[in-house]
């Protein structure tokens, strides 16, 4: 299973990852429509928040709309989803997203686009069991 891992100390806050993510997920430039979020903290360093593919949301979904695909990535089946957002409130790291113009929750699909866009190596794809 691959997931986006982070070394926040290398992050410069350039948001290239978010731009790449919005483009892949929604062909958009709106940085609210991203599965990865970079936010500046009070001390000037950055917080990088993105799904670690832990899968806790799979069990919370009332309609079995969330599953792990063959590659191990946690995916949402939009046809089955009833937009309850239980997954969003129950995500241990709050990495499930919503946007007023997007129908239903969305999340990181471990495509790696953000890691390729990152100029400093602050995010990278990592293998995990």
């Amino acid at each position: 299973m691959k997931y986006v891992a982070a070394k926040p100390e290398l992050c410069t806050g350039c948001q290239a990852c978010m731009e790449a993510c919005a483009k892949v997920l929604f062909k958009a430039t709106d940085l609210e429509k991203t599965a990865i979020k970079v936010a500046e903290k009070a001390d000037g360093t950055y917080d990088i928040n993105v799904c670690n593919q832990c899968g806790e949301c799979i069990d919370i979904c009332p309609v079995e709309a969330i599953h792990r695909n063959k590659a191990g990535t946690v995916m949402i089946d939009k046809d089955l989803c009833v937009h309850c957002y239980a997954c969003a409130g129950f995500c241990p790291i709050l990495a499930m997203r919503y946007h007023k113009d997007v129908v239903g929750p969305f999340k990181c699909i471990a495509c790696g686009a953000c890691t390729r866009a990152c100029p400093t190596g602050a995010i990278f794809m990592q293998e995990a069991e």
């Binding site: 009833v82 937009h83 957002y85 409130g89 129950f90 007023k100 129908v103």
Partner: peptide
């Protein structure tokens, strides 16, 4: 075909935000 917008609400964004807030509170 049950979905989250079948009530055609005036302000779905607020409903979603309130919902997620309470889900998190319960969590």
């Amino acid at each position: 075909g049950i979905k989250g917008d079948l009530n055609d609400p005036h302000d779905l964004d607020t409903i979603i935000k309130l919902g997620i807030k309470l889900h998190k509170e319960i969590h």
